[in-house]
Design a protein around this nucleic acid. Sequence first.
DNA 1: ATATATTTTTAGACTTGTCTAAATTATAGC
DNA 2: GCTATAATTTAGACAAGTCTAAAAATATAT
Lengths: 220, 220
Amino acid sequence: MYSLSEENYLKAIYHLEQQATAEVSTNAIAERMQTKASSVTDMIKKLADKDLLTYKKYKGVSLTDSGTRTALRIIRKHRLWEVFLVEKLQFKWHQVHDLAEQLEHIQSQELVNRLDDFLGNPQYDPHGDPIPDSEGNIKRRDKKLLGQLEANQSATCIGVKSASDDFLKYLSKNNIGIGSKLNVQEAEPFTGALTVKVGETTLFLTKEIANNIYVTLIKS
Amino acid sequence: MYSLSEENYLKAIYHLEQQATAEVSTNAIAERMQTKASSVTDMIKKLADKDLLTYKKYKGVSLTDSGTRTALRIIRKHRLWEVFLVEKLQFKWHQVHDLAEQLEHIQSQELVNRLDDFLGNPQYDPHGDPIPDSEGNIKRRDKKLLGQLEANQSATCIGVKSASDDFLKYLSKNNIGIGSKLNVQEAEPFTGALTVKVGETTLFLTKEIANNIYVTLIKS
DNA sequence: ATATATTTTTAGACTTGTCTAAATTATAGC
DNA sequence: GCTATAATTTAGACAAGTCTAAAAATATAT
């Protein structure tokens, strides 16, 4: 359907659109794709011709419905393959991204849907990001860094920001994993450190650690 | 490591080498790759530069050790993915080839080896072809068409040549599948039809059917 | 043994996706 | 509102992989 490059651009632009408020700029795309702005200009012209995005010279781009649908199909594949790699092949969270970048380009609706079933129709990937369904519907949830919480707030761990081996070991040693419920007891305003209750034990987390853990708030 | 095209050429040349006795010709490669002879010439020059094959103008090519090893790595991936698709995702034999053509190009030794373990280190793919191990060792076995057997020979079904839906249905209706033991009772010389015993039942198979079933002889 | 047919290679062109360098447009400071 | 700077686009080039058409080498037939 679309070339490898086209798919990568669509995905990058989709992610940038999620963060940004306005149109996505040429430079932003270039930086994310590790390429030159002139290459981006060439490519977005092609994508505009195919009605995957709207583009006004010097004014940035935004995906059309068709472009968004296509991006979500790729993201669905990426995240399902990540689940497969972690759940079935015992890879660690942080090892799967580059592999999924390759696997996401395999062309076959049938394959993705069977994979989805084989994995038990997971809702979230190993990083805690939601997996779009085959219609392109995606559950958005408020993803925050643990470090952004205040005292007395509760949250569920849904992933980590950057996952070094050491950091993952640290987490498992302290019984923190995806799905763990975390209660913030105290938030030290000056250092940004947190006192957090995990199950029955109370932990002291530095700002660096707290800002490397993604959570979603539990309403109280 | 190598480009998608390079990998496909290596695989095609490997398969042609298995059949042919002498060097593989430019035209043979072109036909198998569904491309033009001039394109083949261009590519084999590149592969020769990379020491993946030896090439003398107008004299055809043959893979070097390095080329063979590389081809076997790709074939290993292809066949393991086929097993995955059939065993885990419930695809039928004949649906998996095109998908495996895509999946075989995923780059990661780690992934292949984990997939191998996940699948229980299978020896053969769903078409009955042997799967090279991670060192590139491949068990060769005598693959014949059922139609080539003579009266009183016994063989194990290891695959089919071309698998239409109808044909696969025909087989399963008659309890023939991979691993089925087949005894040739009679071989009609003129029409090429066979009388075959499968378990307790005796079947009459036309030449067309018999020449679409791969078997390996059982020594008696 | 030589003419003819076939195979293979070369030459030159095209597409995709990238780049550098130069030109153009937008933006921010004053 | 003008000017300096930053962002973006254009122009032209390049590499990979393919193609067509023509030339060269090899194989075949009588």
